[in-house]
């Protein structure tokens, strides 16, 4: 019963932090974009605009729920759920820190669960989030939404391939599908044992593929305002729209965590192998926070690609590179 209670508390805390982080991410997006454009960004609601996400949430709740004429109402309602839930589920296998000892109570490792097949779980559930986009686009009964949904699904399928191949390189190096084992293999106190130094090409491809996978700039063809109004969520309003956004930001956070875990040694602290758990957690948050910032940073720096360029990049550049990288990794491992 005590174990159950600990798991329950861990789940609540981690999900609370995830949703809070997603909300803060919307604020950070606006703040950083404003600073990069020599503006202030939201600064009216609360100190430094910190309560802005709350105000946005309240506004979303009071907006009218619209369902377009001729839309399939059930699938229309299902789509935002399918978009948000997989993104939030995947955080369950991310190891945030090592053994937590709180007030003399041993709470186990700081993650909701350490699955043997954590990587597979993440990829499998993460792959489901494409349904939210594609069904939302279809069910809206609008040409812009449909085009946005089709583009997004084509893009996500194309980049998932490279993404999984790159993950395979890391998995092959560690010999485990468990994210905690992958972290521990890098946690030697020496930052040079992080995978980013042994797999630099894989790291670059992975980071770029995460941008495509989360439908972020410069690959945000699902939205693509100038061409498609807002893509798959053109017809959505109120909390349904908010759910799409929650899903998008949760996916970004999970991808940032995953990049940290796979390539930057997860919660490992440089030059301190047996750091206490809160130092590890701080290290993890700093690294993941950098990648979350990178999502925003890149969005407000680069122009959008053209769709054929995106497909060209995915299939003719990243896929062969990822395959070659996997081949070389396998060869090196089997020869060594």
């Amino acid at each position: 019963m005590n174990d159950f209670l600990i798991i329950l508390i861990k789940t609540c805390v981690i999900y609370g932090c995830l949703i809070g982080a997603a909300a803060l991410m919307t604020l950070a997006e606006r703040k950083f974009s404003a600073w990069m454009q020599l503006r202030y960004g939201p600064n009216r609601v609360g100190p430094w605009g910190l309560l802005q996400p709350l105000a946005d949430g309240v506004k979303f709740i009071f907006k009218e729920e619209l369902c377009p004429d001729g839309a399939n109402p059930w699938i229309f309602r299902l789509a935002p759920i399918l978009s948000a839930v997989p993104a939030m589920l995947t955080v369950a296998v991310i190891p945030f820190a090592g053994d937590v000892n709180l007030f003399g109570v041993d709470c186990g490792n700081l993650s909701i669960t350490d699955l043997d097949i954590g990587v597979l779980f993440l990829v499998a559930i993460g792959g489901l989030s494409v349904y939210g986009v594609i069904l939302g686009g279809w069910a809206s009964n609008s040409k812009y939404s449909l085009l946005g949904g089709l583009r997004a699904s084509a893009q996500m399928i194309s980049y998932e391939l490279s993404l999984i191949l790159i993950i395979l390189c890391v998995v092959a190096m560690t010999g485990s599908l468990d994210l905690r084992a992958i972290t521990e293999a890098q946690n030697t106190g020496n930052p040079l044992s992080w995978n980013v130094f042994s797999q630099p090409l894989a790291f670059v491809i992975f980071v770029i593929a995460t941008f495509a996978e989360t439908n972020r700039h410069p690959f945000d063809f699902a939205e693509c305002e100038p061409e498609l109004v807002a893509g798959f969520h053109t017809e959505y309003s109120s909390m349904k729209f908010a759910l799409f956004f929650l899903g998008e930001y949760c996916a970004m956070i999970v991808m940032a965590c995953l990049t940290t875990t796979l390539f930057l040694g997860g919660y490992s602290v440089p030059f301190w192998e047996d750091a206490p758990w809160f130092v590890e957690l701080g290290s993890f948050c700093a690294k993941a926070g950098f990648f979350a910032f990178l999502f925003i940073w890149v969005r407000w720096t680069l122009p959008r690609f053209r769709f054929d360029q995106l497909m060209h990049l995915g299939w003719k550049v990243f896929l062969p590179l990822a395959l070659a990288n996997l081949l070389v990794t396998g060869a090196v491992i089997s020869l060594a």
Binding site: F32, W35, M36, Q37, L38, R39, Y40, W300, T301
Partner: peptide, 14 residues
């Protein structure tokens, strides 16, 4: 990226 990063610390015009 370096250009946008430097812009973040310039005085605001709003």
């Amino acid at each position: 990226l370096s250009i946008t990063f430097r812009k973040m610390f310039q005085p605001k015009v709003t």
